[in-house]
């Protein structure tokens, strides 16, 4: 296995080929915030809270740490004024949907995000896709999926599958960063299988 040397926040970090920046940082004990990432699931790159700055071959770029592959001599910065601005804005945009989510509140404190910046539109879902992907990739049941597109995108259970599979599983509930998934599931059950 080939070793790759890169620099994260001024520290030399060793990584293996094929690792992402996030994995390399985690292995070195450097914290990068994530919302849609889960180690058992394929990298997704949707929440963008893990945005970091990379410098390779003289060019600086902002990239998502959870999907960007490590390279030899890559220079990574996990905090900067701009990165913090991005994370703050992402949190504020999400807090409009899930103002009470603990995962968001903790990060909001760190980045000075104002949960009332945008008008509330409480859908409780931040579209991290953890439930959808866990159900598909780990459980292979596909009981919950995304529907629609753009700003109308939402998660939706398939009642026929959910009524068979979900009662004895519920493993996706604790993954939900807004703790609202359970409510969504119960609602689905109530509507479709009284």
């Amino acid at each position: 296995m080939s070793e790759i040397l890169l620099q994260i926040d001024g520290r030399e970090v060793e990584a293996r080929k094929g690792m992402t920046i996030l994995e390399a940082a985690q292995s070195a004990g450097i914290f990068i915030p994530t919302l849609c990432h889960h180690e058992k699931l394929e990298a997704y790159g949707a929440c963008r809270i893990c945005t970091v700055e990379v410098e390779a071959r003289g060019r600086k770029n902002l990239v998502a740490a959870c999907v960007y592959p490590v390279e030899q001599n890559l220079v990574v910065r996990t905090r900067s004024e701009k990165i913090d601005r991005i994370r703050k804005m992402i949190l504020e945009l999400l807090l409009a949907h899930a103002p009470d989510a603990f995962a968001l509140q903790d990060l909001a404190k760190e980045y000075g995000a104002d949960k009332d910046r945008f008008e509330k539109e409480a859908s409780f879902c931040i579209h991290c896709g953890l439930c959808v992907r866990y159900c598909a990739e780990v459980k292979k049941k596909n009981a919950v999926g995304f529907v629609d597109r753009g700003t109308r995108r939402e998660i939706s259970f398939i009642p026929e599958i959910a009524s068979k599979e979900c009662w004895n599983c519920k493993e996706c509930f604790p993954l939900c960063p807004t703790e609202a998934l359970q409510a969504a599931f119960v609602l689905t059950k109530a509507l479709f299988s009284p």
Partner: peptide, 10 residues
């Protein structure tokens, strides 16, 4: 848009 990532969708 597809609605997958936060900065674009939101």
């Amino acid at each position: 848009s597809c609605g997958k990532c936060v900065p674009c969708r939101e």
